[in-house]
Design a protein around this nucleic acid. Structure first.
Length: 328
RNA sequence: CUAAUCCUAAUUGAGCCGA
């Protein structure tokens, strides 16, 4: 809501209340999260003339906005700009850049930033490790990822739920369910407080492999620890059953989530429709479209693509085109 | 208010590219 933020910001200036660094940082952050990075950068000179110099937070926010949009060259420029201004980058500055480079697939540069961080006397922390491990996992470099995990205790760092879920997800996406389950077993053995989030990652891995029996077991284990499944957990299971065209089971999970008072979202319905379409139960899928509307949910591109694809696959091109028009 | 604002992990479609 940059519009609103900007409005209030202007209003406070009109009232003669001068903004401070904090105020500016918030406005800049708002622009960044909306992807209006030009506007965000344009505020730097303005804040200087109005009240104050940009601080490390200011730069972190901007660099993060650029990293999130994979504009790494520009992020690097801002990083150097902050150095030129005599500002000392923090852990967060470095972590932000490391994550950005990892997500852009430039692991080399990510590690270089880590070294630079060390050179400045800053010790890589948990987020640094998690970001790098994530980068390695996404590049299918599991050995090195695991290597970083084992290196953590030497740095007096304790892996957290993010660390484990990153690795479990990494193994899962490479089809290495054993590796994923092994890590899970390690957490259980250690008596680690596994979160619902982490469970959902493992469940997703099992579901993608069609291991629904195992998934149900893990779900039981989770609930046995008094953890409450959330929407994502249910959506994941529905997707798993849908991939196997087990529409009965998918619908059963859908009902179960309703019984537990969890409101389905667009993803829930998209996953259900996928199963029905694959099982050639297109009519039922279309029924769900109505049900969605009834719940105040707005079908998205995925919804329509699923249905159009379903119709196309059974040769009902005409209905496919009708849906195409309906979505426009 | 202010030990305030900034960093890391999960769920849905089709197509394209690649093997």
């Amino acid at each position: 809501r940059t519009d609103k933020a900007w409005e209030i910001f202007s209003e406070m200036m009109q009232m003669g209340i001068s903004p401070d660094v904090f105020t500016f940082n918030k406005v800049i952050q708002a622009f960044c999260t909306e992807g209006k990075l030009e506007e965000a950068s344009a505020l730097l000179p303005r804040m200087e003339q109005m009240c104050c110099k940009p601080d490390v937070f200011t730069y972190n926010v901007i660099i993060n906005g650029l990293c999130k949009r994979r504009q790494m060259e520009e992020a690097g420029r801002h990083f150097h700009e902050m150095l030129n201004r005599g500002l000392i980058p923090s852990h967060i500055t470095y972590n932000t850049l490391i994550d950005g480079y990892c997500k852009s697939g430039n692991l080399e540069q990510a590690f270089e930033i880590r070294d630079r961080m060390r050179g400045q006397g800053l010790v890589p922390n948990l987020v640094t490790y998690n970001s790098l491990i994530n980068g390695l996992c996404k590049s299918a470099r599991m050995e090195e990822a695991k290597g970083l995990l084992t290196e953590m205790p030497r740095e007096k760092l304790v892996p957290d739920n993010a660390t484990y879920s990153i690795l479990i997800d990494g193994y899962s996406r490479l089809g290495d369910i054993r590796g994923a389950l092994e890590l899970h077993g390690e957490m259980v053995r250690k008596g680690f407080a596994i979160s619902v989030f982490t469970y959902s990652v493992l469940l997703n891995g099992l579901c993608k492999e069609g291991r629904m029996r195992a998934a149900e077991e893990i779900l039981k284990e989770m609930m046995g620890k008094a953890l409450v499944p959330n929407k994502i957990v249910y959506n994941t299971l529905i997707d798993g059953y849908s991939r196997l065209e087990n529409t009965e089971a998918a619908l059963r999970v859908h009902q179960e989530m309703g019984r537990r008072g969890i409101i389905p979202d667009v993803i829930t319905y998209n996953a259900l429709m996928k199963g029905l379409c694959r099982g050639h139960k297109i009519q039922e899928a279309v029924e769900l479209l109505k049900e969605m509307y009834g719940m105040g949910l707005v079908p998205d591109t995925v919804t329509y693509n699923t249905l159009i694809d379903g119709h196309a696959k059974i040769g009902n091109i005409q209905e496919g085109f009708r849906l195409l028009e309906e979505m426009q």
